[in-house]
């Protein structure tokens, strides 16, 4: 009778222990690569969106803003920083009148920065839902009645955890950047 040849117990144990040794190493390598790639992708995303917000607001202010107001429609009663030594801080919204007598509003809405224009009657959001804007702050200041008011904006932007709606907290996901700009209104 022909004897059926099979692996011995020792052979099987050796093979299984080798697999048990190598698999975690391979998984650790793949995990490191994927998490690093994720971090770079997220950093790139928040930088792109932060740059976009800052550029949009800067060009709006430089090209169009004539005066700053606390509410809309803009009028003399809600005009801000039009007199010497005045400061106004807000974490929510500011309204700006442009040279064509239209107005636009920059406001903070549920972790996103938005802009509304009375000329087009459209609100558009400057950042996507993938990122979260926080520590949003706007200020106008006037030190001298001979110079136009100064507009300051700063905010932080991070990658949003879709489950908690908060900034992603694990080490490989934790990326946030702070943006700030100061613009002197020109078209007064």
């Amino acid at each position: 009778m022909k004897l059926k040849r099979s692996f011995t117990l020792i052979e099987t144990i050796v093979v299984l222990s080798l697999i048990g040794l190598f698999l975690p190493i391979i998984f650790a390598i793949v995990f490191t690569l994927v998490s690093q790639q994720m971090k770079v992708t997220r950093l790139s995303l928040i930088k792109r969106q932060g740059d976009f917000i800052l550029n949009e607001i800067s060009s709006l202010m430089k090209n169009s803003a004539l005066s700053i107001h606390s509410d809309f429609p803009p009028n003399d009663q809600n005009n801000l920083c039009d007199r010497e030594n005045t400061v106004y801080d807000t974490e929510s919204s500011l309204v700006f009148r442009d040279k064509n007598n239209y107005w636009f509003r920059i406001f903070f809405d549920n972790n996103r920065i938005a802009s509304y224009s009375s000329a087009t009657n459209v609100t558009y959001y400057l950042n996507s839902n993938e990122v979260r804007v926080y520590d949003f702050f706007m200020r106008c200041r006037n030190n001298s009645s001979y110079t136009p008011p100064l507009f300051v904006i700063w905010f932080r932007i991070c990658y949003r955890n879709p489950n908690t709606n908060d900034c992603a907290q694990t080490n490989e996901e934790k990326v946030d950047l702070r943006y700030e700009t100061r613009i002197r209104l020109r078209n007064r």
Binding site: T32, L33, Q36, K39, L43, G50, E180
Partner: peptide, 23 residues
């Protein structure tokens, strides 16, 4: 690959600091 990715991360951060000073 990890060094390349780290380098990419540093490049993005460096260009952020660059923009920060420009502003």
């Amino acid at each position: 690959f990890v060094r390349n990715l780290k380098n990419e991360e540093y490049k993005i951060l460096a260009s952020y600091y660059l923009g920060d000073l420009s502003e």
